[in-house]
Amino acid sequence: MIELIAGKYNYWIYIALMMIGFYAMIAKGNLIKKIIGMNIFQTAVFLFYISTSKVKGGTAPIEWEHAILYDNPLPHVLILTAIVVSVSTTAVALALIIRIYKEYGTMEEDVILEMGEGETQDTEQRLHDLEDEIKDAELRLRDAEQIAKSVD
């Protein structure tokens, strides 16, 4: 039993990390916290892969005259690819969150769900409209001033 827990501790850590990440992805209401959970979740899988590559008594897979056994380099290479994937997923997720924050003004999922289907206006579009309105108002003000002057 002790052997099972202590001898394979890295696998236990991988399971624990994975569950922590999974929990955060499902239970957290904040969009950024979900992404943090997602990163922990993916990192746990990296740990799993790296653990499988270890050979008892093996050294790093670099040619060396005293080496008897080498660790398996292939999972390292696979995980390098998976890390790239993880980074790009995070990038896409963060980009989405930025746009969600611009549109809704919040990053809490339940608040966003309450807002429901809204109008489609971009913040930029709204800014544009406001600027136009200000210009209109200025023009009208100038007209009014001219009229006032002519009355005088």
Binding site: F22, M25, L31, K34, M38, F41, Q42, V45, F48, Y49, T52, P75, A82, V85, T89, V92, A93, L96, I97, R99, I100, E103, Y104, I112, L113, E117, G118, T120, D122
Partner: peptide
């Protein structure tokens, strides 16, 4: 142009990543 699409995409991203990570584990 619709802002609802952003949340739809975000939810798909979360679920899609869980799915892909499960597949990665299976491969492992």
């Amino acid at each position: 142009k619709r802002r609802d699409a952003l949340m739809a995409s975000y939810n798909y991203l979360i679920l899609g990543t869980i799915a892909a990570t499960f597949i990665l584990l299976g491969i492992g």
